[in-house]
């Protein structure tokens, strides 16, 4: 019984969107019947085509993920090898930053974008995104580094491996699961982020998914655009659903670890 309610509660709204996206507009407003792919066609042939937003988002997501890892790995490693007290203090600050509502930053970031001419630069968006994801990434990776026995790294030291070699050949392979969890969570965050994308991106063809959806929501281009709305939610949500289904274990462990270890 509880199971049915749970599934209905979680899936119902999503299935309704899928259903709506496949119904002709007339059918949605009461008259008419049948199925159609028109809403998808309309979205994909719009100017710019909806696929554009997905590509932009994937691009920002990937570059932000890489940048986050590039900054978080050395930091987490350093913290895990630093003495107890300074590491705990820094980690506390990092944990506090993780709970900080990012929306408070948008005004300052708006000015940064304006003064440094970073607006409408997709790659530049990685900088604030990486900053916002760093707290979680550092906490997750630090916990993973700390679980590696110190003797293992000392064996590598005696083997004559330098810091980079130790990371590349010994430590990173051993924290691969945590790296995957972190990368996935960062990517999901970037895919979903709205306020900063809203302030940094204004050119239609550079929009990422979230502001593009919001713009569709606010536009009156479509008379009764709900079929297209629904199709947009399906297209925008599908990649995340796919990601979750494929990597459920890594994502779930990352989420729980992140909240508990933080």
């Amino acid at each position: 019984m509880g199971r049915t309610v749970l599934l209905l509660w979680s899936l119902g709204p999503m299935l309704w969107q899928l259903y709506s996206s496949l119904r002709p507009t007339q059918a949605l407003t009461g008259v008419g019947s049948g199925w159609t792919l028109d809403h998808y066609r309309q979205l994909l042939s719009a100017e710019p085509p909806f696929g554009h937003y997905l590509v932009n988002t994937a691009l920002v997501g990937s570059s932000s993920t890489l940048l986050t890892l590039a900054l978080a790995i050395p930091c987490a490693y350093g913290l895990s090898r630093l003495g107890q007290r300074p590491a705990r203090q820094i980690s506390l600050v990092v944990a506090a930053a993780a709970a900080f509502p990012a929306v408070l930053l948008f005004l300052a970031l708006l000015e940064v974008a304006r003064d440094w001419q970073l607006a409408n630069n997709l790659l530049a968006l990685s900088l604030p995104y990486a900053g916002l994801c760093l707290p979680l990434a550092v906490l997750l990776l630090r916990a993973a580094f700390r679980e590696i026995p110190l003797e293992l790294e000392e064996a590598a030291l005696i083997d004559g491996l330098n810091l980079w070699q130790r990371l590349r050949w010994v430590l990173l392979p051993l924290i691969a699961p945590a790296l995957a969890s972190t990368a996935l969570l960062v990517f999901i965050f970037c895919w979903n982020e709205y306020p900063i994308a809203l302030t940094w991106l204004s050119r239609q063809e550079l929009l990422t998914l979230a502001p593009a959806i919001a713009r569709i929501a606010g536009s009156s281009v479509y008379t009764i655009p709900y079929g297209a709305f629904a199709a947009a939610t399906v297209l925008g949500g599908a990649p995340m659903i796919l990601l979750l289904l494929l990597f459920q274990r890594q994502i779930i462990s990352g989420l729980t670890q992140g909240a508990i270890k933080g």
């Binding site: 026995p149 003797e151 293992l152 000392e154 064996a155 590598a156 030291l157 005696i158 083997d159 004559g160 491996l161 330098n162 050949w169 010994v170 392979p173 051993l174």
Partner: peptide, 30 residues
């Protein structure tokens, strides 16, 4: 000298073998 340049062979209490590498690679990595 740093540990890597002392030409010492060390056997750790836990043996500290690299868990993700084969025996062969464990020996030859350094």
């Amino acid at each position: 000298l740093p540990p890597g340049e002392r030409r010492v062979g060390m056997v750790f209490q836990s043996y500290a073998l690299y868990p993700h590498l084969s025996v062969e690679r464990n020996l030859s990595l350094g």
